[in-house]
Amino acid sequence: MTENLPLAKAINLGLAKALAADPKVLLMGEDIATLGGVFRVTEGLKAEFGENRVIDTPLAESAIVGTAIGLAMRGYRPVCEIQFDGFIFPGFDQITSQLAKLTYRHEGSQSFPIVIRVPYGGHIGAVEHHQESPEAYFAHTPGLRVVSPATPHDGYWMIQQAIASNDPVMFFEPKSRYWQKGEVDRETPPGAFQASRVIRMGTEVTLVGHGAMVAALLQAADIAASEGTSVEVIDLRSLSPIDYAPIIASVQKTGRLVVAQEAPGHVSVGSEIAATVAERAFYSLEAPVMRVSGFDTPFPPAKLEGNYLPDADRILEAVDRALAF
């Protein structure tokens, strides 16, 4: 049985299930308790689980992460919400210098099962610091796991899998998809947590992306199909580690790969996939791996975001270049 739910509600239900299943799970962040979060992802959870498990914190990102580390040492499994992508950097030191390294520093005697939820990405017409895609910083950092759900079904299950992980997980939520509905099956157990997944079969070009970009990839695939080009689409789902097996298998079939992301392209997740596919599937490639990215500029003022963010047309332009080789 499935239900048609928006992503925000699916994550909310996943959080509620995790809170109910394990008394050590805590939610903490700015405005998450009484207000339910600025995106209402935690709405109703304080009423259901109490103010000691759904905790409004003072306004300090470094302390949200740093105290979550101490709570994990005491046996809790904190789920931190960072209010917006661009506000994560005051907490960057605690995430990268402390959280990411503490299991290693403890030589395994202590786990740090902390989830950091980050609404990320553009398409919402917001002011500066509210539309960014900083996931590459964290994917570059050993000791962190980085995931991003593209659908409500994955939102429901992946947040629970992230909380169940014994490692720190950066959980990037595509905020432009929060209110898009999709089918959620709350009965069927989920697949592997950090597996990438072929979500549309095709034969001529492979498209790879994560988060909100997945919808654009599917839209591009539809348009390509209407023009007679068969496109395979892979939802990356995990940015660290990256599950390459489905990508390599797909490229061995199609010979062409386009990687799309909202983030700037320089030293990005897309760059890493392009390099790895070139190393591992060189003789299968009929064309260079193409990257479609945000530009290497700060995120522009919102009236220009339509020109900045990759969309189906930009993806198809790269598909055309790949096919022309």
Binding site: S62, A63, V65, G66, T67, A68, I69, G70, L71, A72, M73, R74, G75, Y76, Q94, Q98
Partner: peptide, 11 residues
């Protein structure tokens, strides 16, 4: 200082 404070919050 933050790890200690989080630990104390846990207590």
């Amino acid at each position: 200082a933050l790890h200690a404070t989080g630990y104390a919050m846990g207590i």
